[in-house]
C-alpha cells in the first residue's frame, strides 16, 4: 500500500488546540513537512512566540524554546550564534512580529541573521480575543476597532514582506496563502525554500503566510477562506519580494 498522505515526523502526536478551521494547523504541517524533506529535524531548534501559537513548542517534534512576546528573532539569534550548525526558525503571529516585535525582526533581517521566520498574518490578535493588529485591514471590524479600522485613528496596515525585502540582509522574502489546495502547495515550496536558504548560509529568510481566524472574524471556516482570498489578497499581494537562487551561490 502506497502512502499518499500521512502526518510528518516533525510534528508530535499532540492534537492542536487551535479553533476549528484555523489555518495555523496547515502552516504547522507545512513547516514540519519542510523539515522532514530536508532531513534536518535532529538539528532544528524552533522558537515559539506569544499569541495563538504560544504552544507551538508542544507540536513541533524538534527542540523548542518559548520566547517572550515579540522577542523570538532575538532568541533565535542567540541560539544560532551559539550553535551555528543548527537550523533555527521562529513561528510568529502578526501581533507578535509586526507590533511589539517589529524591532527584533527588522534588526534580525538587517543583520542577515541566518534564521528562518514563519510569519502568520491573520489580520488580528487571535489569542487575546480578536483585537486590532498592525495588519488589520482598513475598515475591518475588531474588538478594539468596533466601527472598523479608521486611518485617522490607527493608520495603515503594515506590509512586512515588502518592508523587510528592502533590507540588504534579507535573502529570501515571500508572501503565500493557504486559502486553497493550490496555494497550500505553493506555501509549502516557499517554506522549504526558506530553510534551504538558511542551510546555504545566505542569511535571513521569511515566509509571510496569510491565514484565517474564523473565530475572531466571526465567520465559518470555509467562509473565512473566501474572505482571506477576497479581502486580504488585494492588501497583501502574494509573491516573492526577495529571491535567492541557488545559482548565485554556485556562481560565487
Amino acid at each position: 500500500m502506497r502512502t499518499v498522505f500521512a502526518p510528518p515526523a516533525s510534528l508530535t502526536k499532540d492534537p492542536f488546540h487551535y479553533c476549528p478551521g484555523c489555518t495555523h494547523g496547515i502552516i504547522h504541517r507545512l513547516v514540519a513537512e519542510a523539515i522532514d524533506s530536508l532531513d534536518i529535524r535532529e538539528r532544528t531548534i524552533g522558537v515559539a512566540s506569544v499569541g495563538c501559537s504560544v504552544l507551538a513548542y508542544q507540536y513541533f517534534n524538534t527542540d523548542m524554546q518559548q520566547a517572550a512576546h515579540g522577542r523570538a528573532p532575538a532568541v533565535a539569534t542567540g541560539i544560532k550564534r551559539a550553535l551555528p550548525g543548527s537550523v533555527v526558525f521562529t513561528y510568529q503571529g502578526d501581533g507578535d512580529l509586526a507590533s511589539i516585535g517589529i524591532a527584533e525582526v527588522i534588526h534580525a533581517a538587517a543583520r542577515g541573521e541566518n534564521i528562518t521566520v514563519v510569519f502568520v498574518n491573520n489580520a488580528c490578535y487571535g489569542m487575546t480575543g480578536g483585537q486590532l493588529a498592525p495588519t488589520t485591514l482598513i475598515g475591518q471590524t475588531t474588538t478594539t476597532s468596533p466601527g472598523g479600522r479608521r486611518v485617522e485613528n490607527t493608520g495603515y496596515p503594515i506590509r512586512m514582506a515588502e518592508m523587510l525585502a528592502t533590507l540588504d540582509g534579507s535573502a529570501y522574502i515571500a508572501r503565500v496563502s493557504v486559502h486553497d489546495p493550490a496555494h497550500v502547495r505553493q506555501a509549502k515550496k516557499s517554506i522549504q525554500h526558506a530553510f534551504e536558504v538558511q542551510l546555504a548560509g545566505r542569511g535571513f529568510s521569511m515566509v509571510e503566510v496569510l491565514s484565517t481566524c474564523p473565530t475572531n472574524w466571526g465567520q465559518k471556516p470555509v467562509e473565512a477562506l473566501t474572505w482571506l482570498k477576497e479581502k486580504m489578497l488585494p492588501q497583501y499581494p502574494l509573491g516573492l519580494f526577495k529571491v535567492w537562487e541557488r545559482s548565485e551561490v554556485n556562481a560565487s
Binding site: 531548534i45 522558537v47 524554546q65 520566547a67 517572550a68 522577542r71 532575538a74 532568541v75 533565535a76 539569534t77 542567540g78 541560539i79 544560532k80 550564534r81 551559539a82 550553535l83 524591532a103 527584533e104 527588522i106 534588526h107
Partner: peptide, 26 residues
C-alpha cells in the same frame, strides 16, 4: 567567540535567553 551589539537591551537579554538555552556560557 561571539560579540553582538543588539538593537536594544530588550533584544540583548533575549539573545542571552536563546544562547543560554543551548547550555553555553553567556
Amino acid at each position: 567567540g561571539t560579540f553582538l551589539q543588539a538593537e536594544s537591551e530588550v533584544a540583548a537579554i533575549n539573545m542571552v535567553y536563546g544562547a543560554a538555552g543551548t547550555g553555553q556560557r553567556v
